[in-house]
Amino acid sequence: MSVPLYQAKAELVRMLGHPVRIRVLELLQDGPRPVRELLGEIEVEPSSLSQRLAALRRSGIVTTTRDGSTVVYGMADGDVADLMKAARRILTPMPSRRNELPAELLETEVAAQ
Score class of each variant (00 low, 15 high):
72 V>W: 02
26 E>R: 01
108 T>I: 14
40 G>M: 02
95 P>C: 02
35 V>W: 07
77 D>K: 09
54 A>T: 10
84 M>Q: 07
82 D>Q: 13
22 I>W: 08
106 L>K: 04
64 T>H: 10
23 R>S: 00
102 P>K: 00
85 K>Y: 06
35 V>N: 15
55 A>T: 10
78 G>A: 13
84 M>E: 10
38 L>F: 09
10 A>W: 11
107 E>K: 13
84 M>T: 10
93 P>H: 09
112 A>H: 14
18 H>Y: 10
50 S>V: 02
103 A>Q: 08
47 S>T: 13
83 L>P: 06
100 E>A: 07
43 E>V: 11
93 P>G: 11
92 T>L: 15
56 L>K: 00
29 Q>C: 09
92 T>D: 04
30 D>C: 07
73 Y>H: 09
40 G>D: 02
38 L>Y: 00
79 D>R: 10
109 E>M: 14
36 R>K: 05
104 E>K: 01
95 P>R: 01
94 M>A: 11
80 V>P: 04
73 Y>K: 05
40 G>I: 04
19 P>T: 08
73 Y>F: 11
30 D>Y: 12
23 R>D: 00
89 R>D: 11
47 S>A: 12
111 A>I: 13
87 A>G: 08
52 R>Q: 05
18 H>E: 13
76 A>F: 04
107 E>N: 07
99 N>K: 10
33 R>E: 07
45 E>D: 11
52 R>S: 04
52 R>K: 10
13 V>G: 08
71 V>C: 04
97 R>K: 14
93 P>F: 14
43 E>F: 11
33 R>M: 11
16 L>N: 07
54 A>G: 10
78 G>C: 14
17 G>R: 09
64 T>R: 03
39 L>R: 04
27 L>V: 01
41 E>H: 07
39 L>P: 02
